[in-house]
């Protein structure tokens, strides 16, 4: 039986391990942290957990609509491709820190990249 990407990465345990590291990287990243100022950190972490579950190919109920609505006010404040690139880069660095192999990181990055147009409301 072939393992899914989600299983190969380590499932829910991997999401739990990744979320704090990922969120910390995002908050420390001066290219994008202004978009996270003043948000409720717990709610934001729960959203990031959903995003990581989705990007790891795990169970989700992904809706482009939620992504569009959730980022609309940020696009109005200047959110663009360079910021999406930064998030995907931080995601890759998180997985590298968790010793996820490069080929799986590429797969995760490709899934994350697939929502770029929804995030940027294009």
């Amino acid at each position: 039986m072939t393992q899914s990407l989600y299983e190969k990465i380590g499932g829910e345990a991997a999401v739990n391990a990744a979320v704090d590291i990922f969120y910390r990287k995002v908050l420390a990243d001066d290219r994008i942290n202004k978009y996270f100022e003043g948000v409720d950190m717990e709610k934001q972490a729960a959203k990031q957990k959903s995003f990581l579950t989705f990007a790891f190919g795990g169970p989700n109920n992904y809706s482009g609509k939620d992504m569009r609505e959730g980022h609309k006010h940020l696009v109005e404040k200047g959110l663009n491709d360079s910021h999406v690139d930064a998030v995907i880069e931080d995601l890759g660095a998180t997985l590298k820190e968790l010793n996820v192999p490069d080929e799986l990181i590429s797969e995760v990055a490709a899934i994350a990249n697939s929502v770029r147009d929804d995030v940027l409301n294009r």
């Binding site: 729960a46 959203k47 957990k49 959903s50 579950t53 795990g58 169970p59 989700n60 109920n61 939620d66």
Partner: peptide, 10 residues
């Protein structure tokens, strides 16, 4: 509700 997978806490 949103993710409906026990993650997002909506």
């Amino acid at each position: 509700s949103s993710c409906e997978s026990g993650v997002c806490q909506t």
